[in-house]
Design a protein around this nucleic acid. Structure first.
Length: 588
RNA sequence: GCGCUCUUAGCUCAGCUGGAUAGAGCAUCGGUUUUCUAAACCGAGGGUCGCAGGUUCGAAUCCUGCAGAGCGCGCCA
């Protein structure tokens, strides 16, 4: 239940109240006035839209049910107790049973001051207790440039990493490079053909090979650096060289492209190195010891309508015994390890690097792969929740009301770089995490390109710019809060609208905590849109009502009071922008 | 056929893990600029929360069934 977390980690403006409610429960239970109460059902709602108080609680509703003596007047007892709380200005117990509470303004302002003091660390928590957490994401095969198919997972992983860092985790961002296997051989061969073409050999790229033009560029590099020496070289040597060259250059491009979006990795793990470390044998013996391997036959896959299916004896992993709905091949019939076996070994490698937890971010096309991976990791680590796999649904790309279909094979994919050039970093990052990752998403190129209110990222940046503009303008007038010490008076200058904004500001740590706990960055987006909207709304009220304007040259203390919450506002927005990695623009 | 994910306003999506009258943006219609940035604001219309049961003081939220959509379902990688 999240209330325990509030108490442990943050929002002491709520935790005082919560402690009071809990101790009231204890008291009532001790006096045998109520039957046993499950405290986790008691809720404090501090972002309620009903707005019948700064916060509200269902305490009365829950406790009233548990009263033993029906003549006992809980309402009166509760009212007497709440009246004694020094930080509460007023309260009511509504007919429907909710307690609505308004805090004293001094109390709220105390917390506001803290924001300015803590500044860029505001919102951070120790929720993660310095646990080492590994996020593996993107991990696109090094067979071509990174495309927009990887975009969502890329931004999600990066932002989630930042959220977890702010929440007290030690985060490693990792990219797994699938640099071995038959696809890489095909890649190498495709590259060699492009190389030969540069020397006017008439060679066609076959249907199952990689036709993309990027290989021509790489082939040119080889020609420039090495000339024609590979035309007559030993075949094996040539193949190895082209393989290595292709992967190195493609990864270099991938790193470059991701960097356009400010996405960086701490480590690139290569499949080839995992293979060389003999980790597969280790996984093999772990599974063998647990009696999770056997020689058997797989059923014919249902999706396969071909007639040439042949049932063959091979080594299988009993994943059904853990999470999966069918057993999975661990060795091919010819005795080679399967890709899955490699992947299991890779996860053993991560486990051996002493992470407390692993997170994988996978696209929708790997959904079916999740149960076997979780099964094998569970078998290796003896922990069911050691590996958490977040899956993100596809992004449909829409242009001119048409869904763009992509196929890597036909070479008509849209690269990340193309979309970046079209849209730019900020809208791209913002949009990719603005909805829950499990929801499939439509990405309308026409709309995102627009730099107007269709594009919510500008809406938030605009709020930041407006706030900055006031702060900067005040500074020009010589008004700052650098040596401001009259905090006890500032409440006199705050309207209800401003108190509302301040309440939102002091609930930010909880929003961040929730984003970390549920691994849902989009909660931050909802929050800043709400915050920005409240601000813009307030701003415009100043047009009609001059007393709501922020700068008053005649009244320095009043202006400074405003600057206190404006500074806090700017800090919160800036901290979130930093997590999302979009630019805090002071003027637009 | 099986598995995972999803279904909320005309469209794109939230809904704080069970609370009070279900909310934004876009689109539509109507208003607001001698003013700290109108890239903004205010107002109006628009809903059987896919359908049907169940759990309880209380359900968009939890459970079951059904329908629909997306993705996946070699020993490929």
């Amino acid at each position: 239940m999240h209330l325990d977390c509030i108490r442990k980690f943050m929002i002491d403006y709520i935790s005082n109240l919560l402690n009071f409610l809990y101790s009231t429960v204890d008291f009532l239970e001790d006096k045998k006035l109520v039957t046993k109460i499950n405290k986790s059902n008691i809720n404090i709602d501090f972002a309620s839209k009903s707005k019948r108080g700064d916060v509200s609680s269902n305490f009365y509703l829950i406790v009233n049910k548990k009263i033993i003596d029906s003549k006992y007047n809980l309402k009166k007892f509760l009212s007497d107790q709440i009246s004694k709380l020094t930080f509460i200005e007023k309260f009511e117990i509504s007919d429907t049973g909710f307690i609505n509470i308004n805090f004293k303004k001094e109390y709220i302002i105390d917390h506001l001051k803290k924001i300015i003091k803590i500044n860029s660390n505001y919102g951070n928590s120790q929720y993660g207790k310095n646990e080492k957490i590994n996020i593996e994401f993107v991990s696109a095969n090094p067979t071509g440039p990174i495309t927009i198919a990887h975009l969502r997972g890329a931004v999600l992983g990066d932002v989630l990493g930042s959220i977890l860092e702010k929440s007290g985790y030690l985060v490693t961002r990792e990219y797994y490079v699938n640099d071995s296997g038959s696809q890489i051989d095909i890649l190498s061969n495709s590259l060699y053909k492009r190389y030969q073409q540069l020397y006017k050999f008439e060679i066609n790229i076959d249907e199952n090979e990689y036709p993309g033009e990027y290989l021509i560029e790489i082939a040119k590099k080889i020609k420039d650096d090495y000339g024609d020496i590979w035309l007559d070289e030993d075949k094996k040597k040539t193949n190895n060289f082209f393989k290595k060259f292709a992967i190195e250059n493609i990864i270099k491009d991938i790193v470059y492209d991701l960097n356009l979006l400010k996405i960086k990795f701490d480590i690139f793990s290569k499949e080839s190195e995992i293979v060389n470390k003999n980790l597969i044998e280790e996984v093999f013996s772990i599974l063998k010891d647990k009696n999770l391997l056997y020689e058997g036959y797989l059923d014919k896959p249902i999706a396969d309508d071909s007639e040439n299916w042949e049932s063959r004896k091979q080594l299988l992993f009993k994943s059904t015994q853990i999470f999966d709905d069918r057993d999975r091949a661990f060795k091919k019939a010819n005795g080679e390890w399967t890709y899955f076996a490699n992947d299991a070994a890779y996860h053993l490698d991560k486990y051996k690097r002493n992470f407390d937890k692993l997170i994988n971010i996978w696209g929708a096309d790997h959904i079916g792969y999740i149960p076997r991976m979780r099964s094998v990791v569970s078998a290796i680590t003896n922990k069911n929740d050691y590996l958490e796999i977040l899956n993100c649904q596809i992004v449909r790309l829409i242009k001119d009301n048409q869904i763009l279909k992509m196929s890597k094979r036909e070479g008509n994919f849209i690269s990340l770089k193309q979309v970046f050039n079209l849209v730019g970093k900020d809208p791209l990052r913002y949009f990719m995490i603005s909805t829950r990752s499990e929801t499939s998403m439509d990405f309308d190129l026409n709309k995102v390109v627009q730099k107007n209110k269709d594009n919510p990222v500008f809406y938030c940046q605009y709020a930041y710019a407006r706030v900055s503009s006031v702060i900067n303008k005040s500074k020009e007038l010589g008004i700052t809060i650098d040596s401001f010490s009259e905090y006890e008076n500032i409440k006199n200058y705050f309207s209800n609208e401003e108190i509302e904004i301040i309440l939102k500001l002091i609930s930010y740590p909880f929003i961040l905590y929730q984003s970390a706990k549920f691994k849902e960055p989009h909660r931050l987006i909802n929050y800043i849109e709400d915050l920005s909207s409240t601000f813009h709304s307030f701003w415009n009220k100043g047009k009609e009502n001059e007393s709501l304007r922020l700068i008053d040259k005649e009244n320095i203390t009043k202006t400074q009071s405003k600057l206190v919450w404006l500074s806090a506002f700017r800090i919160v927005l800036k901290n979130i922008f930093e997590i999302i990695k979009i630019e805090p623009t002071e003027s637009m």
